[in-house]
C-alpha cells in the first residue's frame, strides 16, 4: 500500500507555551479530497502552517510526501512548499498590483520543479485561467481590479499551476454567496482531480462537507479545546 501523502502522529504545537494543537493522528491519501471544519481558534490555521512547512512541529511526527518536516531545515521546507504545495486563502489571496497572469505564474518563479512540470508556464497559466472560466480580457489587468469571485479563481489557478501534489485551501469560499460558493467548490474539486492533486479544504462552515470524499471536524482531531488554547490560532 502506498504511503499517505500526509502522515501525522501525536502532532503537537504550542504558541508561547500555550498549548494549541495536540493531534493524535491525521492522514491524507494522494488525490484524496478532504474537508476539515472547525470554529475559529480550533487550531486550523496552526495545522495548515505545519502542513505547509511554515511552522515546525514541537512534538510528534509529520511527513508530507514522505519528507520528515521535523528534520528539514527552514530553507528546504520553503523549497518543498514551493515545489509540492499549492495554497489558497480566504482573502488577500493575490498580489493586488500584479497582473492576473503574473499572479498565476508566481509559484513557477520560485520553484523550478513547478515551472518544469508546467511545461511552458505562460501557456499553462492561460490554459488554467481559461478552464476556470476567467475572461482573457482580464488576464493582463491588476488582480485588484477583479471581483472577489474572479480573484478566488485566479488563486485556484495559481495553486494548481505546475501540478503540485497537495492543494490546501483555507476558507476560500467564505466571502462568496451560496451559489458562487458551490460553483467555485465544484470548479476547484474538478481541477484538483484533473491534475491529480490531493485537496485539503478547510472551512468553519460544516454544510460544505457534502461536496467531499471525507469530512473531518477539527474538534475531533485536536485534543486542545479552543478555550484552552490561543484564541487567534
Amino acid at each position: 500500500m502506498a504511503a499517505p501523502l500526509i502522515f501525522a502522529r501525536a502532532l503537537r504545537y504550542d504558541w508561547d507555551a500555550t498549548p494549541c494543537l495536540d493531534l493524535p493522528a491525521f492522514e491524507l491519501a494522494a488525490g484524496e479530497q478532504v474537508f476539515l471544519h472547525g470554529p475559529s481558534g480550533s487550531g486550523k490555521s496552526t495545522l495548515l502552517n505545519l502542513l505547509a512547512g511554515v511552522l515546525v512541529p514541537q512534538g510528534g511526527e509529520l511527513r508530507v510526501l514522505d519528507a520528515d518536516f521535523r528534520k528539514l531545515r527552514g530553507a528546504v521546507r520553503d523549497r518543498f512548499r514551493a515545489d509540492h504545495i499549492g495554497l489558497i486563502f480566504q482573502q488577500f489571496n493575490l498580489i493586488p498590483y500584479l497582473p492576473v497572469r503574473d499572479n498565476v505564474l508566481l509559484p513557477c518563479r520560485f520553484s523550478r520543479r513547478r515551472a518544469t512540470r508546467a511545461g511552458r508556464p505562460e501557456e499553462a497559466a492561460a490554459q488554467l485561467l481559461a478552464q476556470l472560466d476567467l475572461d482573457p480580457a482580464l488576464w493582463a489587468r491588476p488582480a485588484a481590479a477583479l471581483s472577489v469571485g474572479q480573484q478566488q479563481r485566479v488563486a485556484a489557478a495559481r495553486a494548481l499551476i505546475g501540478r503540485p501534489e497537495l492543494v490546501i485551501a483555507d476558507e476560500p469560499t467564505s466571502a462568496l454567496d451560496a451559489a458562487r460558493q458551490a460553483a467555485f467548490l465544484d470548479l476547484l474539486r474538478r481541477e484538483c482531480a484533473a491534475s491529480g492533486a490531493a485537496l485539503l479544504f478547510v472551512s468553519h462552515d460544516p454544510r460544505l462537507a457534502a461536496h467531499f470524499d471525507r469530512a473531518l471536524a477539527m474538534h475531533a482531531l485536536n485534543r486542545i479545546r479552543p478555550d484552552q488554547g490561543r484564541q487567534a490560532a
Binding site: 520553503d78 512548499r81 488577500f92
Partner: peptide, 11 residues
C-alpha cells in the same frame, strides 16, 4: 502570499 508561493525569508 509570497511566502505561500515559495519565497524564502531570504527572498
Amino acid at each position: 502570499i509570497l511566502r505561500a508561493v515559495g519565497a524564502r525569508p531570504r527572498d
